[in-house]
Each structure stands twice: as structure tokens, then as C-alpha cells.
Design a protein around this nucleic acid. Sequence first.
DNA 1: CAGCGCAGCGCAATCGATTGCGGACTACGG
DNA 2: CCGTAGTCCGCAATCGATTGCGCTGCGCTG
Lengths: 341, 341
Amino acid sequence: MARVTLKDVADRAGVHASTASRALDPEKGSMVHAETVARVRAAAEELGYQGHAIASGLRRGHTSTLGIVVADLGNPFIAPVVRGIENHLEGRGLMALIAETRDDHGRMARVLNNLAARRVEAVIVTGARRGDEQVLRKAQRQMPIVLAVRHLPGSGIPAITHDDERGGRLAAEHLLEHGHQRIAQLCGPRGISSFDERASGFRNRLRTAGLEVIELEDAAQHPTLAEGRRLMERMLAQRGVVPTAIFAHNDLMAFGALQALAGQGRSCPEDVAMIGYNDTPMTAFTQPPITTVRLPGYELGRMASDTAVVLMEDWEQPRSTLSLPPVLVPRHSTLGWRGET
Amino acid sequence: MARVTLKDVADRAGVHASTASRALDPEKGSMVHAETVARVRAAAEELGYQGHAIASGLRRGHTSTLGIVVADLGNPFIAPVVRGIENHLEGRGLMALIAETRDDHGRMARVLNNLAARRVEAVIVTGARRGDEQVLRKAQRQMPIVLAVRHLPGSGIPAITHDDERGGRLAAEHLLEHGHQRIAQLCGPRGISSFDERASGFRNRLRTAGLEVIELEDAAQHPTLAEGRRLMERMLAQRGVVPTAIFAHNDLMAFGALQALAGQGRSCPEDVAMIGYNDTPMTAFTQPPITTVRLPGYELGRMASDTAVVLMEDWEQPRSTLSLPPVLVPRHSTLGWRGET
DNA sequence: CAGCGCAGCGCAATCGATTGCGGACTACGG
DNA sequence: CCGTAGTCCGCAATCGATTGCGCTGCGCTG
């Protein structure tokens, strides 16, 4: 389609292509007589010349393109992250290629390969899983990589994450403040840093208060509503003390747990307090509204994108690893507990 | 970074770059002695050669890249669409550049320009607004454009949309079936095809049943919870009959309307039935769960991407415009109405 | 008036691959 | 023993731009 090339413009303006190139480049505009610049500009305008960023990039040695790799585009809390990245890139002349792995190692490898072939200048990977270290490290030889949301402990790959350890602590503290003593948690899938860390943060905080967390051997296979319900049912079926407060590792699981509780005739928050994670929009509208931990996804995206840009401009920067603080959002599901003094 | 070039591989294998190129191209592998192919492959392997899709694309005359332009990446029902596009592209060697306009005409223009400069082979635009016709048509001279979700009536730009006219009809029929006679709708922003059409579909269906829809002059500025509440409050404040059923133009507005009703001591569904739109995940979990219209977003993405691919391969195809059928999802907010016989 | 500096522009190489054309060499039939 | 077809591969042009270097004039100085 886009037929008209720089040479066409140059011909029409009666100059050489190199002159046209300089005339059209604001940086080099001064190397060319003002009148010539005007003539070239006019020619470009008349012909409807559209710059060719690809060819230009080839010669100049850059693509002004980043890659974003996500596990699941449908995941609601990935949206703000991508948004943060995108908004940070805009205005810098950068754009992002986006790809989905669907939590498949093979797809991860293929996607990274494809991005490398396209010479993206950096890649932001949200949704890395244990087992991706190999491919990621291999890809790192081709381009800088920044992990976002989830990191790979011990991999040495720079990462921007939420401070989920702290998120777990916040949840624990909130429940302690409201006088709970028998506290349980429903764990998300193992091997994913963000779940593992909120589990240990929660557990450790309770321990320093002299309490032992009630939890199952079992963790959720996927962080879904159905799994939340299943885990809650299993916990209720166990003999022994029934917890007065539950920390579910995300909002959907919290909601599933609520359904299990309702099925047993226990109400929230009167009988059992519930706390979720992520501050999914629905949590404000459920019955009862669910106390949750809010994560600064948009900021995370901006920061990940920021370090990606730094890395792409200056390879071999000190590996900056950063984690952003979450905030507890109290709602009705923990505020009306009957046992509170 | 990626230093090693095809020439390096060729040198190491003791052949000319052109031969190396042929050896590495599965299509042309037969033009080269099998043993040589093996030698080149080995050399490429040892050197860690990574193909250069940009340079190759420049010569071959394609980029294997599409553009996706969305209004708001945070919009929950845009995610499945992007997902559908992405999944359809994958495996075809295509990738997508993604950009956000935030409903700003200027940004739309800049984004399209940027995509054109990068020589994307087609662009899928979700979230076109009235007023974008100019830029879109101009961009169309550079590359094929497919509208998704929202279309621009009369623009002649091919579009894949939801059949919102029909969505409105479905909502109307559902309410009629349940015996409602005084029915109102809360309209989303004007000038956006999807809202305008669900309004007229709803209105027309009621008319053929001999009913006139109750509605305000006013429409929502944005399809948000706050606006839903505001409109509902205004409607309740008006003298005259109170509707027994409300059609809100999306789920958030429906929820805002519910809050306004609750504020006046009216309960749903006993006093007033409520129906939303989009089947946002939250609607299943609110109290009461909200009847809504489900849109096949993923399929829409796949089809949009499909027609984009067709168009990029064969410019000047018949402009295929298509709309996908929505489905009504009945939930409690319309099923427990007191007035039903 | 010779010489120098500088502004403005063109030449040709370059980025990293692909490809039409033709050369060298083998093999085979007559 | 020669002509010819067929295989494999190299040469050089090409995709569309950018850029180091050098040439041409012009104006100014000593």
C-alpha cells in the first residue's frame, strides 16, 4: 500500500534522498537550508508521505518496541498493570507488542523467541512461573527482561512486584486487631511467588502474636471461586475448632468460601470474618462487601515499564528489584463480627 | 546486543550469506545440498543465531504485525476481545501492537499514525467514537482497518459488533414475559453505537407490544455506577408512575440504580425488577444477582482478527460487516417480582 | 588576490536479510 | 568425446531509510 518513499519525496523536491531525510528529521533540520526544508516538507505533504519506522529503525539500530508477556489477558488485575505500562510508554515513542502464555511453558518459550526475532528492546513478563527460569535466562542474553507481579526467587532477574509478604501481614494484623484468635487461611496455588509470599507473611505475623494459623495441607489448584469453596468445605469438614476468621488468597476464593459457609448456615461477618485479596471491583458490591487487600497495579506497571526503559538504554544496570506496598481496604465482611468486644 | 548476524553464520559454515539464508528457510531448504544445510544449521546453533524478523520483513515486504487500538484497557469487557484477537493471531506468526486512546480524538490520531509508521498490516479498533471518522478514513488509506465492538454508522468501515439492537430486544422481551407494563430504561452515553442501539432495540420491542418506554431526556455521561445512581434518582424524583422494571445500559449502571432504589426503601426484585448489560462477572455475586445480557466478546475478538487477516492479505475485499448475537442471562433480579402472576 | 572556513548538499556505504540471475561443476545420453 | 540438463551455490541488487565524508561555492580576511 504505502507506496510513496523518501526518494519520491526527494525527487519531487529536487534534492537527494539524504537531504530529504535530514530535512524531515527535526534533529537535523539545521543542517539544511531553511528554504529547502520547506520545499521537502511541502513535497512530503503533497505526496502523503508516511515515515517508515521499520526501515529507519533498521539503520539506526533500534525498534522502539517493548514486549509484554502475560499469563492470562482475562485476569482482571492484569489490566491495570498493562495500562500502567502502556501509559508510561506513550509519549516516549515506544509501543508494546503483547502476548499471552496461558501459563504454558512451551508458549512462554515461543513467545520470547518471537519477541527476540522482532528485536524488542526489552520485555516485561507478568505471570512467570517456576519452571520458566531456563527460557527466561536464555532470553535474557538477547534483551533485558523485567519480571512484574510475580518474580522468580533466586533467578537474579530484576522484578517489580507487590509486597505480598506485607499484604499477608496486613491481613493478619487486621484480624488480630478485631480480636480474632482462631484464624485460618485458604492458600492459592503453590509455586507462584505472590501466593507463597502472602501465605508466609500471614503465617509469620500470627506467629509473632503467639498464634498458629489454621490451614490445610492442600492448596488451590487455581485461584478460582470453585477452589475457594472446595477448600472451605474441606476445612469445615475437619474435626476440631472452627475458625472465626478466614484469609482467602484472592477475592474469588473468598467468595467461594462465603458460599461454603452459607451452605453450612454460618453467616459472615457475624459468625466468621472473611478477608480477600486484590480488591477486585466486585468485592465492593457483594453481600457482604468483602474486606480485601488492594494492590497498586497501575503504579506497578509504570515502574516495571520504567525499569525496562532504563535497562534497554543502559544494559548492565544494577539489577533493581522493587516491591510496592499494598493497602488494606476494610469492608463489612470483617467489621460486624459477633465476638468482637 | 544480538550481535551475531547471518553473515557470521555463513562465514563459520564456509558459505555465502545467501546460501545460509536459503539453508535456514524451511521453504527453500531443498535448493541447498542437505549436507550444507546441516552445516549451516550447526553453525547457527553454535553461534546462537537469532533470526532478524525486522530486516527480513523489510526485504520481504511485510511486518507480520497488527495493531489493536482500545479506548480503555481497564474496561473489563475489552479483555476477552483482546484475548480473542491474540489467540487467533498466535500460531499464525502474527503479533499485535497495543495502544490506548482513552477516548481522546487526538490520541486516536497519533496512535494510528504511529501504527502506520510501523507498517502494521491491519488495525483493529475497538472503542471508536463519533468524531473519529476523519482520522480513521485517512488511516484507511495506509492499511486496512476493522472496527470492533463499536462501529461508525455510515462510515463504510468494516465492523464486527455485538448485535445490541437485538440485545435491547431480548431485555424487553424478558421483562414483557414476566408481566411488566411500566418499564423504564437508563441510557448510556449518546453517540456510541452500542448504547444507541440497545436503546432503540429496547424501545422498539416495547412499542410493538403497545407500550411506551419510560425514559429521561438525560443520558449518562459515562457508563458508571455513579451515573446509574444519579439517573435512577432523577427518575424516582419525577412525578408520575414508578416503573416496575428497569433496563440499565450496563451492569455498573444497574448496580448504581439498585443503590438509588434501596435508598428509597424499594427492594429488588420484589418492588422493581432490574436488568443490566454485559454480564460483568460481578453481576453473578451481587445481592440480588443481576439479570443481564451476555456478549460473546472472545468470539468477537476472533472474528475481528479473522477479517483483519483476510483484509491484510487481500486488500479490497468486500467490506464484511457482521454482528454477533447476545444472550440473556436470567438471574434473581428479575425473577422474584411481586407483581408476577 | 590567494587562502581559509563554513554552509549546504550529494555520494555511496550501511543496517540485516532475501532473491533473480548466472557460473561452475557433475552426470548422462548420444 | 561433446553437448546439455540439472544441482548447488555465489554475486550483486534490493527493501527504505540514515550518515560519514567530501565536494562546491560563497564570503571574508590578511
